[in-house]
């Protein structure tokens, strides 16, 4: 299975993950400061800045895209409960 590397910049931890992993599956386990509310892509609590490698995430769904717009999310920000890793190297930090 293809692997990807996700770095949680605020705690200095890089995790090797299989493609298809969502950020939410890893961030809490390494103690990163990304925090969650509804965990269903509605509340925008887990807004996360993609420092680099945003092209290695699956594009946002229509729902995620709408939530990002409603909350005036800046460019290269995603919901950690939704964003799915495809491959390559990605660096993230709490928004």
């Amino acid at each position: 299975m293809p692997k990807a590397k996700v770095t949680f910049q605020d705690v200095g931890v890089t995790v090797t993950v299989p493609a298809g992993t969502r950020l939410i599956e890893v961030s809490e386990k390494v103690g990163a400061g990304i925090t969650y509310g509804c965990r269903e892509g509605e509340c925008c609590t887990c807004l996360t800045r993609i420092v680099s490698g945003h092209e290695h995430l699956a594009p946002p769904s229509v729902l995620e895209d709408q939530v990002l717009k409603d909350n005036l999310a800046p460019r290269h920000h995603r919901l950690a409960c939704q964003a799915q890793v495809l491959g390559g190297e990605i660096v993230v930090k709490p928004a």
Binding site: K5, T7, V11, G12, V13, T14, V15, T16, V17, P18, T21, E25, V26, K29, V30
Partner: peptide, 18 residues
């Protein structure tokens, strides 16, 4: 070390996370 940004970066495999 975390507070002062001196914690060495680490790389782990997801399988090692409980």
């Amino acid at each position: 070390l975390h507070l002062t940004g001196r914690m060495a970066a680490t790389t782990i495999d997801m399988a090692a996370l409980a």
